[in-house]
Design a protein around this nucleic acid. Structure first.
Length: 404
RNA sequence: GGGGAGGUUCCCGAGUGGUCAAAGGGAACAGACUGUAAAUCUGUCGGCUCAGCCUUCGAAGGUUCGAAUCCUUCCCUCCCCA
């Protein structure tokens, strides 16, 4: 039987962002089976910041949703109490339940930018405390009896710690077992993950087989460097484009991406066709900025809309290329029309910067009013309503004088 | 239980009695340059009533004219042995 068009399209689309299938054959079988798939999407809600890297996985799931498959959005509220040791060279702090709930809400708010949450046939929300909080010890021991110690410590991360003579706490070793068991409980057919989760999800396959279930297919996705061109995107390095960022920030952050990364970003983070990207790849040296803006617009279109994309591009061009003071800047209301320069700026920053820091800004020539540089922080200046103050590259505000 | 190493400014990491607000790197910020919030270059990067003063080097005491550096106690982290 020749592959259907839909399947072909799906595979092509998936190949673009897939690192590895475990296995491709099994995946194709799943698609061919015409079965409504259950896609496990397990979430660690330690910190609720989704970036466009996470969203790569979400978009793949969204594609499956659009074909009628169902995402099981699994909040790992129980396992979060343990803390996933993945990628950590030290033990993760444990966060309280109230925090977990709050984070889960925020997480969902962001995931909604990609996944459909509106149809219970396409998405259901579960929590693994449902089964683990009342799980009994003898059952648990049976689970443990199925896995050997050497299998668990074969994990690269554990190996690293052993090599460095660092501690491995027992609950950390249990974590993969619990995550794996989730797959069995949810009868997962498929899960789409970062490659760092591979070991845990492989245990899912293991347990499913042990319990007579068909093992889930695992798809790991490609990872690109962060916007600083270094490590992968992360909150702590602040080198990510977050789903929670405003469209303006998304645009700016895209512009921060090193030129060399533009093509990779187009491949992974947009739906621009591969053919078109290969043309861009050849063109790009001539005018990297043009294509970086293009990338930024595409990304904003994906999470917001076309109008925002255009608006932010224009804002960026006007503000940074043409150096036109933007229209939509905050207004600061003041009473007096005569100020010591530094007091005015301090008022704007509202104690978020120290006096020394603000003085430095003056010294470095970062402060201007209506385009005229104010070099001395202790100058007395006369201001009028409508005056525009600029501090550094990205801070502007307008003055409004109110009568007391 | 025994032995050893260590806790330095946002991060990494030098510094072992004065020349230390503390090297170097990273991050960040500013300026220049640029078609980019890329790259590159330069500068800044504890606080203040700022050419001076004040507070920092896990905590508290002590020695000294003078301590991040020496001593004492305490707290914490890591490693080894049993």
């Amino acid at each position: 039987m020749p592959p259907s068009n839909a399947k072909k399209e799906l595979l092509e689309s998936f190949l673009r962002t897939t690192d590895e299938f475990f296995s491709l054959n099994e995946f194709e079988e799943l698609i061919d089976s015409k079965k409504k798939l259950r896609i496990k999407y397990g979430v660690d809600v330690t910190s609720p910041y989704l970036h466009i890297g996470h969203a790569v996985n979400l978009w793949m799931m969204r594609e499956l949703q659009d074909l009628g498959h169902k995402v099981i959005f699994l909040i790992g509220d129980f396992t979060t109490q343990i803390g996933d040791p993945t990628g950590r060279n030290n033990t993760r702090p444990i966060i309280p339940q109230s925090e977990i709930d709050k984070n889960a809400d925020e997480f969902i708010r962001q995931a909604k930018m990609v996944l459909r949450f509106d149809d219970p046939d396409l998405l259901e929300i579960r929590r693994n405390s449902e089964w683990f909080s009342k799980y009994n010890l003898s059952e648990f021991l049976k689970l443990l009896a199925m896995v050997t110690h050497s299998r668990l410590i074969s994990r690269d991360m554990f190996q690293r710690r052993i090599k460095n003579q660092e501690d491995i706490y027992l609950h950390e070793m249990i974590y993969p077992i619990l995550q794996g068991y989730d797959s069995y409980v949810l009868e997962s057919d498929l899960t789409i993950i970062g490659s760092d989760q591979l070991f845990n999800e492989m245990l899912g396959r293991f347990y499913q087989q042990k319990f007579g279930q068909k093992p889930q297919v695992i798809i790991t996705t490609k990872i690109t460097q962060g916007i600083d061109g270094k490590a992968k995107q992360s909150k702590s390095l602040d080198n990510y484009i977050g789903l929670g960022h405003s469209s303006r920030d998304k645009f700016g952050r895209c512009m921060k991406v090193p030129d060399e990364l533009i093509v990779d970003y187009l491949k992974i983070y947009t739906k621009i066709s591969i053919e078109e990207i290969s043309i861009i790849d050849k063109e790009i040296v001539k005018d990297p900025m043009k294509w970086k803006k293009f990338l930024a617009e595409e990304i904003i279109k994906r999470y917001h809309d076309e109008a925002s994309a255009t608006r932010e591009r224009e804002w960026f061009e006007n503000t940074f290329s043409k150096k036109i003071t933007p229209e939509d800047i905050p207004t600061m209301e003041v009473v007096d029309s005569q100020w010591i320069a530094i007091d005015l700026i301090n008022k704007y920053f509202d104690n978020s910067k120290s006096n020394s820091e603000v003085r430095r800004l003056f010294k470095q020539g970062a402060v201007s009013i209506n385009g005229k540089n104010i070099p001395l922080f202790d100058d007395t200046i006369d201001i009028a309503a409508g005056d525009v103050v600029k501090v550094g590259k990205r801070n502007w505000f307008k003055l409004n004088i109110i009568s007391s």
